[in-house]
Design a binder for these strands. Structure first.
Lengths: 203, 203
DNA sequence: CTGGCATATTGACAGTGTCAATTCCCACGA
DNA sequence: TCGTGGGAATTGACACTGTCAATATGCCAG
């Protein structure tokens, strides 16, 4: 049979199959439910088979996370490329992360669980840096005098987005829109931050 | 003997003893090492004794987290009370969270692990709200016209501090000081955010 | 065709959270 | 004073986890 089981003793592309099963498990049941054994079961393979492709649970989760960062990066690049230069690009960056995170909350949570990830992993580092650097580059290219180090602002935006999404996912946000302006809060916050970045006008 | 063991069959104040042991375990080994059984061992009691005081692991961690929020609240109130009104109070708030978190990194991490906490717990909710409301009240009392909802700024400051601390704990911050001004980055970020909050001067 | 080697299986181990049954002993009412 | 009820702690068990070692399988290079 080759419908649900596999025909041969060797799987053929178990690594990919495990990543797929793991992602489905993650989306469906959260990080808790994503055990090596459950992933192996879902892929129709014995409980110790994954060891050939991932050193341990950290290894599996790390590979997942790297992929997710990559997906967000793609989304961010896409959104930013159609936005006019300037502040709108930063909002686009934020929206990429926010959209992805609201669509896949458990993936978002995994990304920041550094205790579960192999933080020294090269692929993970590259994937994460690619995203962060995209943001940093945009800030460096803003082309207006700023009061502080671009990296300071990158940290701020990065943190803001992370915190904002966390609060929304946890249901800690009364409303997603600013009560004063009616705009989505993430726009508001970034606007405030960036306009605060201007060198104060001579008075 | 009453030196290391206890004299009586009943412990007397096992709840408190468990919280103490759990805190020590947490500080020493992180959340991973903080199992119910290890906590019971450290308190010199059988592996199932804690069930009489905490429904399950979540219950234990939730009680811990509520206590930690309380400690931070105390620190924040203290620091803010000696700061001049205005932006300095917000910086004081941030410094309270930052100082506490750098001193007890594992406690900080626990506070945001909502998957491990009983998020509906009343005590936890009160402890967390007390801290957040302290920040919100300060923003509402700033006494200058702001472009946006105070809650929007509360979310921003809350997120900024959380993100900033996370990055510092993870070693992802190249330098703690702004390259341009030499000031600690958290001051810088908050300054930018709050000055961006001003209603733009008529031009 | 035949080794060698990557891949997959099976079985075992220690550790976990959580339950049920049991033992202990303190405090309260008769 | 004497039970005795019930909270507190113990013991033992279960299913689950990650990880390791030993074994079985089958593809591919020589």
């Amino acid at each position: 049979m080759s419908k649900s089981g596999r025909a041969t003793y060797h799987h053929g592309d178990l690594r990919q199959a495990l990543l797929k099963s793991a992602t489905e498990l993650l989306d469906a049941e959260g990080i808790e439910g994503l055990s090596i054994r459950a992933t192996a079961r879902a892929a129709g393979v014995s409980h110790a088979a994954p060891v050939n492709h991932f050193a341990d649970r950290k290894g599996l989760l790390t590979a997942l996370a790297a992929g997710f960062f990559g997906e967000i990066w793609g989304l961010a690049v896409e959104k930013m490329s159609v936005a006019p230069p300037g502040e709108a690009r930063l909002v686009a960056f934020a929206e990429a992360m926010i959209d992805y995170s609201l669509a896949h909350p458990h993936r978002f949570r995994l990304l920041w669980r550094r205790d579960l990830l192999e933080v020294t992993d090269v692929r993970l580092g590259l994937a994460m840096d690619a995203l962060y650097d995209r943001l940093l580059a945009e800030l460096e290219g803003l082309g207006k005098p700023m009061r502080f180090d671009p990296e300071t602002y990158a940290i701020a935006v990065w943190s803001l987005v992370h915190g904002y999404v966390s609060m929304r996912l946890d249901g800690n946000l009364v409303a997603a829109n600013d009560a004063r302006t009616g705009e989505p809060r993430h726009r508001t916050i970034i606007a405030a931050l960036i306009s605060g970045a201007d060198v104060p006008a001579p008075r």
